[in-house]
Design a protein around this nucleic acid. Structure first.
Length: 186
DNA sequence: TTGAGGATTGGCT
DNA sequence: GCCAATCCTCAAA
């Protein structure tokens, strides 16, 4: 299983968001391994995207979106939830990231169920905050390099035939942009 | 130093 | 469908 190279993430954010669908994300916790197929992503860009964290100005929190691609950007929100992003952008753009909204677990499901406190497969990882909880992603994972074999990385996955584009979820600006992408998994 | 608000979720109506 | 939970970040003073 080959890890996606950093060049994979140096295209336009929206393009990378589509390309990430069907790829496999692997998370290692001590001796246990959790992995799943990415089935839903959202693109967040820069000046042309009022809903993006990077829209206004650079701050301590969003500076990762302006940095090197292929780096994890984790942020905390609503007092209880983490969301997991991967920095991805065209070299001409200053900032951009892909939010991983949902995965399809294929390995370490028991561990995920334990993390989430439930066993219902459909509710394990079908939301950004659920996904982070399932993979034990916290602020400590902010800045992790997913192009290197470590505790958190992304590899080639399955081929996806059909991509569905929809409007992004949970935001109040630029809601007409169809930058939410998902695939069907059998 | 303080106050306001957020790329969400789950439970209740 | 609506709303509370709850803490980190930003911006203003």
């Amino acid at each position: 299983m080959s890890i996606l190279p950093r060049e994979f993430y140096s295209e336009d954010t929206v393009v990378v968001a589509k390309k990430l669908l069907g790829k496999k994300i692997t998370r290692k916790i001590k001796n246990e391994e959790i992995s799943g197929i990415i089935i839903e992503t959202e693109a967040y860009r820069h000046k042309d995207d009022p809903a993006s964290h990077a829209f206004c100005k650079i701050t301590e929190r969003n500076e990762r979106m302006f940095g090197e691609v292929g780096i994890a950007y984790v942020y905390f929100t609503y007092g209880m939830h983490y969301c997991f992003n991967i920095v991805a952008k065209n070299k001409r753009k200053q900032a951009g990231a892909v939010l991983i909204r949902a995965i399809h677990p294929i390995k370490g499901i028991k561990r995920i169920q334990k993390n989430r406190g439930i066993t219902n497969l459909e509710n394990l990882t079908n939301g950004p905050a659920k996904l982070s909880q399932a993979l034990e992603i916290t602020r400590k994972e902010n800045g992790a390099d997913v192009t290197k074999k470590s505790n958190l990385f992304i590899t080639e996955g399955i081929k996806c035939k059909k991509i569905t584009a929809s409007t992004r979820i949970g935001i109040k600006k630029a809601t007409e942009r169809k930058w939410n992408f998902k695939i069907e998994v059998l």
